[in-house]
Design a protein around this nucleic acid. Structure first.
Lengths: 262, 262
DNA sequence: GGTCTACTTCCGCTCAGCGGAAGTAGACTT
DNA sequence: AAGTCTACTTCCGCTGAGCGGAAGTAGACC
């Protein structure tokens, strides 16, 4: 039951509409006026007005001094209960720090979220490039190191769904299914993925899988470097060592079964 | 109509009910079955079932392998957009680390959230006591160091509302309005608050205000120590120095106006 | 077999939610 | 000072989305 294309259609249910409103907020739209929310959601202004006010009442949104709206503390508070993320985040941070010390490149960890790779945490210094991938970002599976790792180890259904729409981001993005499939096989064989400016020009990444119970891949750990100037072999082994340690720690903490639905 | 003594939050609206469901999740109930949610919300099982499923569809909840539910990635993703918290968190962490290095006690920062002090971040080592106050916790304003700082600098309306229900947590909790009022005046005068086992036995805390634009108090920075064994004078000045630096940094980053709504 | 408790599906009634229209408020133009 | 933006808020009658009791399914335990 894959409702393939109900993008704009959205939902008739109130909850659906409420989340349409909340979804109008993203990293580039943290702070919006009522009109902006109405425009972005496509909801009638009046409806939007009512919903927004209800959400403010619930603490899901906050009205700022200038009359605009932002995500409220209730959502933040609930968000940190998402054990998958806060747990994974907490446990993996020290390991990511280690990698950062060795590589001095941006380090990121992501999990599968629908047909995207959700960045759960990343470490970046002032010298590292301004990556798109802040925590909460959802990278395409076929055009990022972490994404390709998850895709390579994903189900056939997942792969088919992704193959169906291979958007292109740079000239280097892989949009050919056959090319991608062979690369995914290679990734499974070698145990790491490599992405060269496939998502953003000037950003190359390496990533390895993080295993949970039963050697199921539950996350991907990777680095993003400005240009391909690193010793790949060495970095891959650093990543693999860390991922291995992290994996054991996760299982020890009963977090080896990050689960996925839909 | 029928029972005026409705659920704690009489929410007839769908959004209200949806958030009743989400609110059934807290630090001790991250992982709940449908029946448990229904019990905790007081909603009829059928209604709860429908709501939960809608929320799962929206990605606000996730169904785990064992059939239970947790907060989903959508909420987490939205949560990190709450600039107040994620911004404050990010900027204050380094300063909190500094304090931790000097004090080796748990360090926490909180903001006003309704009639509570919302803990936005805390640092604790393995040697520090297991504090109640993890990020996301909402401490009472009259029974914690950070809370009392915010209360002392809060509006008259806020103070009156808090005075109206001074719950007692330990034998040391201040439940007398007059005593509390004089203490709040003292806190404003001296520039720091002190709480001795008023919230939990064996936990003493010190806290100072963090200022934003126009010297408005926007947050409280504090430490929690197992017993009163520290040199208070020294710790207060450490806190004050850090709070001062943090304050400047926050204003510099355009975060000097953390705002509040009912 | 019987009896738990947990979850899911069905369906007719009704009231919560809908959204067009009209009103208020401020900012900018002529 | 009148006109015209755009942004927000209030009003209100119609209607179908949401409600929840009842009944059905599934597994666990005695």
């Amino acid at each position: 039951m894959l409702d393939s294309a109900d993008r704009s259609k959205g939902s008739k249910s109130v909850t659906g509409r409420a989340f349409l409103v909340l979804d109008a907020f993203d990293a580039d739209h943290r702070h919006q006026t009522l009109a902006s929310i109405a425009r972005r959601t496509g909801l009638p202004l009046t409806t939007c007005h009512r919903l927004v006010h209800e959400l403010v009442e619930q603490g899901a949104l906050t009205r700022t001094l200038d009359g605009a709206y932002e995500i409220g503390s209730k959502i933040w508070r609930l968000g940190i209960l998402a054990s998958l993320h806060s747990g994974l985040r907490e446990i993996s941070l020290p390991y990511m720090e280690d990698i950062y010390q060795l590589a001095n490149d941006a380090v990121q960890i992501g999990v599968l979220d629908g047909f995207r790779c959700l960045i759960v945490e990343r470490i970046a210094g002032s010298r590292t490039l301004e990556v798109i991938s802040k925590p909460g970002a959802r990278l395409p599976l076929h055009a990022s190191g972490v994404g390709k790792v998850l895709l390579a180890h994903g189900s056939q259904d997942l792969q088919n769904a992704v193959f169906a729409s291979l958007d292109s981001y740079t000239g280097q993005t892989i949009t050919d299914v056959d090319v991608l499939e062979t690369q995914l096989r290679e990734i499974k064989r070698q145990g790491f993925a490599h992405s060269r400016e496939e998502l953003a020009v000037g950003a190359t990444s390496l990533a390895v899988p993080v295993l949970g119970y039963g050697n199921k891949v539950i996350a991907a750990l990777g680095i993003v470097t400005p240009v391909e100037n690193r010793d790949i072999e060495r970095m891959v082994s650093v990543l693999k060592v860390s991922a291995n340690a992290l994996s054991k720690k996760l299982i020890l903490n009963g977090m080896g079964d990050l689960n996925q639905r839909v």
